[in-house]
């Protein structure tokens, strides 16, 4: 077991466009998330939250600084290797669930694993395991429109978790869910964290950010402040 963080951002900057019209999305952001750690990112619209998440997961490349995932620097990684690293190590949960309506919950979780080149039987077994982990074993054969919004979001999380990925990136995963259902989603992410994953969560909801070990406040693309859970009640 290594004590290196699962993801580390060092002096990361992200400019959109160039010249005098360039817009700074991120500037000098340094942040590390270790295994077992849940870090929440908060900030007003346009503060760079989603850009930070995309850069951390290799979906977007920084214009300066470096991102290291599982010990591998992403800066000079060719596109093909970057895609492979993402598939192997990174799970994404977005507000927009992107579940395929004509596939069952089980098929929605299985399909991306198959596309990753996993044999059907193994992909299916992994999918069943992870659906059970998120409490959806009994609705595995239902279609997205046959289950509740909270259950759909849990399917999307199961899809992100399948295959023992250690870096989970979640962008507003509680979407429009009511608070008890949103709390269940955080419960799942927290449990995965406690089992050794590193979770980076973007949210504008303080109540969900409060599940984190650390809360990073972004403002105009910079880290403005960090709140750490008080030590006396640490796990």
């Amino acid at each position: 077991m290594s004590f290196d963080p699962v993801v580390r951002l060092t002096d990361v900057g992200r400019l959109h466009g160039d010249g005098p019209g360039a817009v700074t999305a991120l500037s000098e952001v340094s942040l590390a998330v270790e295994a077992g750690e849940l870090v929440a990112v908060m900030g007003p619209s346009g503060s760079g939250k989603s850009t930070l998440l995309n850069v951390a997961g290799g979906l977007d490349r920084p214009t300066s600084g470096d991102v290291v995932v599982e010990g591998v620097s992403l800066s000079r990684l060719p596109a093909g290797e970057l895609a492979a690293l993402r598939r192997r190590h990174v799970g994404y949960v977005f507000q927009d669930l992107n579940l395929i309506p004509s596939l069952t919950a089980l098929e929605n979780v299985t399909l991306p694993r198959e596309l990753d080149g996993i044999r059907f039987r193994d992909a299916r077994r992994q999918a069943l395991e992870v659906l059970a982990e998120v409490g959806l074993a009994e609705v595995a054969d239902r279609f997205p429109d046959e289950i509740s919004g909270g259950q759909r979001q849990r399917v999307a999380i199961a899809r992100a978790l399948a295959g023992e990925r250690r870096l989970i990136l979640a962008d507003e995963p509680t979407g429009a869910l009511d608070t008890p259902t949103g709390d269940e989603i955080l419960q799942l992410l927290r449990a995965r964290c406690d089992a050794g994953a590193a979770v980076l969560l973007v949210t504008h909801e303080p109540r969900y950010a409060a599940w984190a070990d650390r809360v990073v406040f972004l403002r105009d693309g910079r880290v403005a402040d960090t709140a750490t859970a008080p030590l006396e009640s640490a796990r």
Partner: peptide, 10 residues
């Protein structure tokens, strides 16, 4: 905000 977030985490 940072202080209140600490309370919320606790």
């Amino acid at each position: 905000r940072t202080a209140t977030m600490g309370t919320l985490q606790r």
